[in-house]
Simulated assay, not measured.
Amino acid sequence: MLPFKANPRILASFFKTYPVISPQIVRKRGTFTSENSESVDLAYASYESTESENNPLPPLVILHGLLGSKNNWNSTSKAIHRTTGRKVISVDARNHGDSRHSTQHSYVHMAHDVMNLLKKLELSKVSVLGHSMGGRTAMVLSLLCSDLISSLIVVDISPVKTSLQINTMASLFDAMSNVSVRPGIAMSKARKVADEQLKSITPDVNLRNFLITNLVQTHTGAYTWRVNLPALKENFTAHISNFPSSLKGLQYCGPTLFIGGSLSDYIGKNDLPEIQEYFPLAELVYIEGAGHWVHSQKPQPFLETVCKFLKEK
């Protein structure tokens, strides 16, 4: 039994459409190993101290965006922990980082993965911060299990619409799949080779550097991507690029903050009324000069905004 109250009608409907089985799960070095292939192990990093152990406020769970990982949030997680005193848990989504791969990749599956993780960590109340894909996972989690969520922070993504820029993702998946790096060379050289090949698809050096954080070397010396590109490409149009329409009518009525980048079009300035149909208490703020990667492009204003909300809510 989950240590929090889920919406049984919605869960029954979704798990009929997206069958996800709750397996026996055991903790192993920051991951949970599942005996059932449909439930995915989630790797995580925990930022805590003596102060956080005595802090009565719920831990903050951070969910990264598409093609990202918990490592992208290392410095931000440390800073939030230092500033708020809260324990911070940064999680790798399925098919990303150190978490296991699956052919399935929907927001309902990802929300269920987080439910299982929090259950095994014996956490009955958490705050959640999600960026992009992670933001939608956080939204779905809060709508399905509102009693679990103390407060919600969504970074540069909306349940209302999707940026036209997201349509370029398919070409990025193809470009990454076509990258060829000779086995055995040094990682620094491998990254330069990959960068050169990705230039044809995007002139944005920051985006290329972000993609290349997923390049890893196997024990044989071969290079590969740690993200599950085939699964992400297969599920992109149907499950990743849009917010689940079947959640219409559900609400999370807890404290909610949407943070957008002023240079990004992922959250429209007129979207708030529709956002509030799902999240009645939602506030919307923009970080000036930031694009989609708000937390890395304007780290200090982003940190101040997040910590102010967490201290007040």
Rank of each mutant, 00 (worst) to 15 (best):
L198S: 04
T213Q: 14
G97C: 11
W225Q: 04
P56F: 14
E35D: 15
G85E: 02
I259N: 09
N228D: 06
D195E: 09
K120E: 13
N7D: 15
A43E: 07
R100Y: 06
G65P: 02
H112F: 11
R100E: 11
S127N: 09
A111Y: 03
S188H: 10
S264M: 11
K78R: 11
L117F: 00
E122A: 07
D195Q: 05
L207D: 06
L257T: 01
G260N: 07
G134F: 03
S99D: 08
F173Y: 09
R86T: 05
I212A: 14
Q276H: 01
E48Q: 15
L284G: 12
L257G: 06
G260C: 10
R226N: 11
T31K: 05
P203R: 07
F236K: 07
L121A: 12
R94W: 08
N7W: 09
Y47G: 00
R208E: 10
V160G: 02
Y223Q: 05
M187T: 14
H239C: 05
Q276L: 04
K5H: 12
L143A: 06
L207V: 15
V193A: 06
G260A: 15
E234Y: 08
E312H: 12
S151K: 04
V154A: 06
P244G: 07
G135D: 02
L118G: 03
Y278Q: 06
E48C: 11
V108Q: 02
K233N: 10
S37M: 10
M169K: 02
Y107D: 01
S106V: 01
K87E: 08
L129Q: 01
E196P: 00
S296M: 13
H239E: 13
H101K: 14
Q217G: 07
P230A: 10
I275M: 09
Q276R: 11
R27W: 13
A186K: 11
A111V: 04
K161F: 10
K248V: 15
L164T: 13
L148A: 02
I21C: 09
P230T: 05
V154S: 07
P8K: 12
T50S: 11
G291S: 08
E48K: 13
G221D: 14
L60W: 01
I25T: 10
P203S: 13
R191N: 11
N74F: 07
N178D: 14
S241P: 04
S90L: 00
T31H: 07
K189H: 11
L232F: 08
N209G: 15
G65Q: 01
E51H: 15
A12C: 09
S99I: 05
Q276F: 02
N95R: 01
F302T: 01
V154C: 10
S296Q: 14
E48Y: 14
D204P: 10
L57C: 03
P301G: 07
Y278P: 02
